[in-house]
Design a binder for these strands. Structure first.
Length: 326
DNA sequence: AACCGCTTCAACCGCCCAGTA
DNA sequence: CTACTGGGCGGTTGAAGCGGT
């Protein structure tokens, strides 16, 4: 048996708020405050709304000093930086952007910023042969390479675990690669991956990001990997091989394992090196701990210092975006 | 003008956590 | 210690708007 609903669903109004309801809620809160009890608030305010709905409406729309409209470049940068550090902790990200709500930022990220960074190809411009439908299981990862030297973002071609629906750039061969960070999630079960795809490096054939990573641990858990590269990077997918660039870096890979079926490999050659941190059992990092081991105060500091070099980690877990290019 | 497909974003859903009885 | 409750949060949905044909 599930938990009791927070309100009588049959007697509450749903859907868009009318200007009258807005005025009623705003008026009540301005006069009486929230009283620390959102569940009781609608009744007191004479609204036929769920308490949670009132809270959301107030926080996201009616609250004073809410900023609507275009996000500035600075805000973009802050969102990207924090997202790279702490993931989709929208409330924490929102706390760094006065006047912005977590919902706003979440929507902005999902609808605009993500596309801005990844250069999404409109459906109408896709050629049928470019589209490959992957396995029906959720594909949790997308991968992004961030080149600090020219402020450009690049994604490598999609891997089987990297099914971000986007136009994957293979152009980082002509970047200086002075500061490239890569991250991806590996899923060990082949059944979840669909067709085997992997990146490999020429010469010594170091395989990574979905292949058999070089493991430093005896049990193959791949907790730490250190690789020095100055090599061409090739993308391989069965019979299709594509050279995707030249990388020159000395990387230290750390694993962030959050459960048995998902392993996160991070790579960075940035100046402010970082180490992997284990998520807690609930899949979240501690309130003041970030994946990079930064506290919230440190994140604030990070915002001001990462303009020169960032470790970017992008991943998503959206089951319905299982289209990829190869 | 009508239709269609895409995008946007407000709002909802359901889970998790902390506080409390 | 356990059960319950409300608040908070991230993920998802769907109506509205918009542009193209």
């Amino acid at each position: 048996m599930g938990r009791a609903p927070c309100c009588d669903k049959a007697n509450v109004k749903k859907g868009p708020w009318s200007p009258e309801e807005d005025a009623q809620l705003k008026d009540y809160i301005q006069k009486n405050g929230t009283g620390g009890n959102w569940i009781a608030l609608p009744q007191k305010a004479g609204l036929r709304r769920c308490g949670k709905s009132c809270r959301l409406r107030w926080l996201n729309y009616l609250r004073p000093n809410i900023k609507h409209g275009e996000f500035s470049d600075d805000e973009d940068r802050i969102i990207c930086t924090l997202f790279s550090s702490i993931g989709s902790r929208w409330s924490i990200i929102a706390a760094q952007l006065p006047g912005r709500t977590d919902n706003d930022i979440k929507n902005y990220w999902n609808t605009k910023l993500k596309k801005k960074l990844f250069g999404r190809v409109p459906h109408s411009q896709r050629k049928p042969h470019q589209i490959h439908h992957a396995s029906p299981s959720p594909s949790p990862a997308s991968t992004l390479l961030y080149n600090c030297s020219n402020n450009a973002y690049h994604t490598p071609p999609a891997t089987s675990f990297s099914c971000f629906e986007a136009s994957y750039s293979s152009s980082f061969s002509n970047t200086s690669a002075s500061c490239i960070s890569a991250a991806s999630i590996l899923q060990p079960q082949e059944s979840l991956l669909g067709p085997i795809q992997h990146y490999q490096l020429h010469d010594n054939g170091v395989q990574m990001l979905g292949g058999e990573a070089s493991c430093s641990s005896s049990d193959g858990s791949c907790s730490n990997i250190q690789i020095s590269h100055n090599k061409e990077l090739e993308y391989s997918n069965g019979d299709h091989h594509q050279q995707i660039g030249m990388q020159s870096y000395n990387s230290f890979y750390s694993e962030v394992a959050d459960d048995e079926s998902q392993k996160l490999i991070m790579a960075s050659n940035c100046d402010h090196g970082w180490s992997g941190h284990q998520k807690s059992s609930n899949g979240l990092w501690g309130e003041t701990e970030t994946p990079l081991g930064y506290g919230i105060e440190e994140i604030k500091q990070l915002i001001t210092t990462t303009s020169s070099c960032n470790s970017f980690l992008f991943y998503e877990n959206k089951a319905d975006e299982k289209v990829m290019y190869y």
